[in-house]
Amino acid sequence: MRVMVLVKANKDSEAGILPDKKILTDMGKFNEELTKAGVMLAGEGLHPSSKGVRVRFSGTKRTVIDGPFTETKELVAGFWLWRVKSMAEAIEWIKRSPFQEGEIEIRQVFEVEDFGPALTPELREQDARLRAQAKKQ
């Protein structure tokens, strides 16, 4: 299964303070370990929310809200996408990460199979119909 590992923001990350050399080195080592174990699929760090926007939906109305956003601990500052055998494996891996504070959230990624067999044929049929239409046009 795939999991997304969400690294939450903190005061420093939101202030745009880059991690010091030691943290970067430790994190580099951890990433290398993940890669060498064949676990790492992708991973990125995010700029502070001051450089981000939110788009709010209300019916047909779309409102763009500029960052920064206040609820720092709920903000995402980076993520990994891992391929693991179980949630337990993801937990074992994250325990080895060099974080000293804060909180990490691990979420399971939906796979096609997760949508259940009942939904799939209909969706597939709809999909096939749309593609046939597109071909005619």
Partner: peptide, 10 residues
């Protein structure tokens, strides 16, 4: 048990 399996895998 899950943790032990995971440690073993790693």
């Amino acid at each position: 048990r899950g943790a032990i399996d995971a440690v073993w895998r790693i």
